[in-house]
C-alpha cells in the first residue's frame, strides 16, 4: 500500500485550490488546513462553491488547479483504503428506498470489514435514534430520520473524517434540533474530524469550533465563532441623513467620527443619526444579501471592512 494511513499530519490540507467551469471561476485560490478532531464549518452563501470544495475533497470532482491532501492523500488518486477512512453525508440521498433500515445498515457495514471493525447495527441505530425504525422501509422514513440514517451509514466504518454537506436543509425546527444533538454526540467519538458545510451562520456557531467563511471564490474569514464575533463587533456602523440622502460609515472609533461629523454640521443638516455595534450576524447577512444580488466583490470587501 503506497498510501500513508497514519493519522500524523492534518486531516485536510488545501492550498491555492482553483476551480473553473468554462470561463467562470468558482474557486479562485482557497487555502486552509484542518487538524484532526473537532467540527469545522465551511460557511457561505448559496452558490459560493461550498459543494464544489467538498466534492473535490471527497474525490468526486477533478479540480482545475492547486494542491489538496485529504488524510494525507490526493483525493484524485485515493484508493479504496483511503475511501474506507472517510464518511460522506450528502444533502439529498434517496437511495435504496425499498430496503429495510436494519438490513441496509448491516449490508453497508460489510463493505468496511477488510479495513476496520464497523459499528454493530443495533448499537449504531440506537445512537442515531432509529432503533424503533429498524424494521421499516427506508422510503417510509421522515426527512429527519432519513438524514440520521445517512449519518449512521456515514460513520459506520468508524471514519477518521466525516463530511456533512448542508445536513439540515429543509428541516423543521424540531428535526433540526434533534440533528444538532446528534452532531454533538458525534463529536464525542474519538478521532473523527467533521467538516460541515452550511449557509446558516446560526448552525455554524452552534456546531463548529471553527468557522471558515467562503465567498467570492476564497476563504474570507477563519476563526472560532467567538473570534469572528469579536472581530465583527470592533466595528460600528454609523448612519445618518444629510441633504435628504442616507449615509453609512463603518469605523472602529464611533465617538471620534460622530464628534467630527457633528462639528462640521453648522446648519443642522444631519438628522436620524444611528450607531450600531456590528454583530457577526449582521456582517454575514449583509454579505449574503449582496452576494445574492450579484455584487459578490463588493460584498466580500464590505465584509472584510466590517470584520477586520
Amino acid at each position: 500500500m503506497a498510501q500513508p494511513l497514519t493519522d500524523a499530519g492534518p486531516a485536510l490540507a488545501v492550498s491555492d485550490l482553483r476551480m473553473r467551469y468554462g470561463d467562470k471561476d468558482v474557486l479562485t485560490g482557497v487555502d486552509f488546513t484542518i487538524e484532526p478532531g473537532g467540527v469545522t464549518a465551511l460557511l457561505g452563501p448559496n452558490g459560493a462553491g461550498k459543494t464544489t470544495i467538498v466534492e473535490i475533497l471527497e474525490g468526486f470532482r477533478a479540480r482545475s488547479a492547486g494542491s489538496v491532501e485529504v488524510l494525507g492523500t490526493d483525493p484524485a488518486r485515493g484508493g479504496e483504503h483511503w475511501r474506507a477512512r472517510m464518511g460522506i453525508v450528502l444533502q439529498e440521498w434517496r437511495d435504496n428506498g425499498k430496503w429495510r433500515v436494519r438490513d441496509l445498515v448491516v449490508h453497508f457495514a460489510d463493505y468496511y470489514r477488510p479495513y476496520a471493525e464497523p459499528w454493530g447495527a443495533d448499537e449504531l441505530l440506537d445512537m442515531v435514534g432509529l432503533a424503533e425504525q429498524a424494521g421499516q422501509r427506508v422510503q417510509s422514513l421522515s426527512g429527519g430520520q432519513r438524514r440520521r440514517l445517512d449519518v449512521a451509514l456515514g460513520i459506520i466504518g468508524r471514519p477518521a473524517l466525516l463530511f456533512l454537506d448542508e445536513p439540515t436543509t429543509g428541516f423543521d425546527p424540531h428535526a433540526r434540533r434533534e440533528f444538532h444533538e446528534l452532531i454533538h454526540r458525534l463529536t464525542d467519538l474519538e478521532g473523527t474530524t467533521i467538516l460541515l458545510t452550511t449557509h446558516d451562520l446560526d448552525e455554524a456557531e452552534k456546531l463548529a469550533e471553527r468557522i471558515l467563511i467562503l465567498a467570492g471564490g476564497h476563504i474570507i474569514a477563519d476563526g472560532s465563532p467567538d473570534q469572528l464575533a469579536r472581530s465583527a463587533a470592533t466595528v460600528a456602523e454609523i448612519s445618518w441623513t444629510q441633504d435628504g440622502q442616507r449615509h453609512v460609515h463603518s469605523t472602529e472609533d464611533a465617538t471620534a467620527f460622530v464628534r467630527k461629523l457633528l462639528a462640521t454640521d453648522d446648519d443642522g443638516a444631519v438628522t436620524d443619526l444611528e450607531i450600531h455595534r456590528a454583530s457577526l450576524e449582521a456582517a454575514y447577512l449583509t454579505l449574503v444579501e449582496q452576494f445574492e444580488s450579484g455584487r459578490s466583490e463588493k460584498a466580500v470587501d464590505q465584509f472584510r471592512e466590517m470584520t477586520e
Binding site: 475511501r83 450528502l90 440521498w93 428506498g97 453497508f108 477488510p114
Partner: peptide
C-alpha cells in the same frame, strides 16, 4: 434510476461499493 436517486453515488462513496 439508481443514478437519479443516488444509489450509485452511495456505492461510490463506500470502499468496494461500486463492485458490490
Amino acid at each position: 434510476m439508481d443514478r437519479t436517486n443516488g444509489t450509485l453515488l452511495r456505492a461510490k462513496s463506500i470502499p468496494g461499493g461500486m463492485t458490490g
